[in-house]
Design a protein around this nucleic acid. Structure first.
Length: 468
RNA sequence: GCCCGCUUGGUGUAGAGGUUAUCAUGCAGGAUUGUCAUUCCUGCGACCCGGGUUCAAUUCCCGGAGUGGGCGCCA
């Protein structure tokens, strides 16, 4: 349970007026919030007041609050911030049609005074309680108002929950939380464009992932680390699932191989899903999202806890199955969206794709000599985790043998000298280690049914948007 | 970067070479109401920009800008 400590502006939250209402009857309280709606233009008026914990009706009578204050509230615009002092009372039950159940008792505040903290300008750029659809672009331009909408607010509370449950699980498995630098000197670990920046007199970059640094933590004997932090990629992609700044949930584990960290991943995701499905507050957030979806005639989202272990579909088998289904692909190709759709037909939820060809993986991925695929090419210990058609995670066992590592760099046309800070960490003994990076926003998409990854980020950064 | 759409009140939409430009929501005013998605009445508010075709363009054509979707690549 959350403990709400009174503040300078309110003695109770609006949620508490409802949950503690029976004990608060006739007590004087001060509450504050956004005015969702007001009704009544005569000698009485009702205000729906909303704060972060819920909504409560405030009842105003001319002879209790005074004609002047009543008039002020009656003229107030929606979403204005108001503070009321008054006494808690039992709300008169609504008229119910015959046969319908009587709703549980609700409480209201009979106002004795009001303070207008801020009047909201009208018209609102988007309706907070309106049922009309609002386009994502309009929403993001006015995110502060969009966030006031119940289902959007719930999305971000749920985001916090997901991170909390994930963090909680890793800590129980002995992980420690770390932070690695986001300003880096090395151009790239391959595969992506970076944002250049100026670091005093020297060119530098925003980091694309904590990869190389978390490996140095392994060399440093930290054994089990995780990090939840931003990653920056300057790719000019424009899709429902890409961002130029996203939050990467990363782990790295010593004395472990790819199978070991796949285990960590599926246990963590299982814990997150299970917790969201079972925890009361999370269920409430899901219910809020579903209430909105119902107004948009969208199907309710259901939190289906995935079974352990997640299915494994090795790369070679995936290629074979795609071919059987009529997809165009050759061994050694990346699996594109169209072909991922074919795999997703049979694997609509989480599944691992282990043992990719070494040729498709970055220099830091480990391979075991003799592990070869169906065309006699070297396999790697790299894996992906998909949810249906979408990639959630990329991971693998890392190359801890310094000579192989340097060969890999050379084979991929990278200059080992540029990676000296990294290679140096391998000169004095490194435990075999493995890890992964998980896209937090993509997980949120799957959990909340969001069709666009931007919905799961407060202020998304994409090709066209970096403000607000 | 490539391909395909779209752009109409604050928001979301309907629509047509000549209309009083539709509906919902919103906003303003009024009637009713201890209301509770109130109900009812009245009113307000819009065709992205530039050029072309035409007697006439918001509608057709070209260009631009903005935006949405798909793809590549990725998390």
């Amino acid at each position: 349970m959350t403990t709400w400590v009174p503040t300078a502006y309110r003695t109770h939250t609006l949620g508490e007026i409802q949950t503690l209402g029976a004990d608060l009857i006739d007590k004087t309280v001060t509450v504050a919030g956004f005015m969702e709606a007001n009704r009544g233009k005569g000698a009485i008026c009702f205000v729906d007041l909303r704060d972060g914990t819920g909504t409560t009706q405030v009842f105003l009578k001319a002879n209790t609050i005074g004609a002047e204050s009543l008039d002020l509230v009656q003229r107030m615009t929606r979403e204005s911030t108001l503070q009321f002092t008054g006494t808690v009372s039992l709300k008169r039950p609504p008229k119910v049609k015959e046969g319908e159940p009587t709703p549980p008792p609700a409480y209201e505040v009979l106002a004795t005074s009001v303070e207008v903290i801020a009047r909201a300008e009208a018209p609102l750029p988007l309706g907070v309680t309106d049922t009309v659809n609002v386009e994502l672009d309009t929403r993001l331009d006015n995110r502060f108002l969009d966030l006031r909408r119940a289902h959007v607010n719930a999305m971000f509370r749920l985001r916090g929950k997901v991170l909390q449950f994930g963090r909680q699980h890793l800590i129980t498995e002995g992980f420690i939380e770390t932070h690695t630098p986001k300003i880096v000197a090395t151009a790239t670990e391959g595969g992506t464009d970076l944002f250049p920046m100026q670091y005093f007199e020297t060119p530098a970059y925003l980091n694309q992932s904590p990869q190389l640094f978390k490996q140095l933590c392994m060399s440093g004997g930290l054994e089990r680390v995780f990090e939840i932090g931003p990653a920056f990629r300057a790719e000019k992609h424009d899709t429902y699932r890409h961002l130029n700044e996203f939050i990467s949930f990363d782990i790295e584990v010593s004395w472990a191989n790819d199978d070991d960290v796949m285990g960590v991943l599926e246990r963590m995701l299982h814990h997150i899903w299970k917790s969201v499905a079972e925890e009361e507050e999370s269920q409430g957030l899901i219910a809020t999202i579903n209430a909105y979806r119902a107004t948009q005639e969208e199907e309710a989202i259901e939190v289906i806890v995935p079974e352990l272990p997640f299915p494994r579909m090795e790369y070679c088998d995936a290629i074979r199955i795609i071919k059987e289904k009529g997809g165009t692909i050759e061994w050694g190709d990346d699996i594109d969206a169209e072909n991922s759709d074919l795999l997703a037909e049979d694997l609509p939820q989480f599944y691992f794709l282990p043992r990719w060809p070494m040729s498709l993986k970055p220099f830091y991925i480990h391979h075991v000599e003799g592990e070869i695929g169906s065309t006699d090419q070297q396999l790697s210990r790299g894996f992906d985790l998909n949810f249906g058609r979408d990639e959630m995670t990329s991971g693998g066992q890392r190359e801890h043998r310094i000579d192989v590592l340097i060969d890999n760099l050379k084979n991929m046309d990278l200059d080992p000298e540029e990676f000296e800070f990294y290679v140096a960490g391998f000169r004095h003994g490194v435990p075999p280690h493995a890890g992964w990076g998980l896209g937090v926003e993509r997980i949120l998409m799957k959990l909340t049914g969001a069709k666009n990854v931007r919905e799961t980020v407060l202020f998304p950064r994409d090709r066209k948007r970096f403000c607000p």
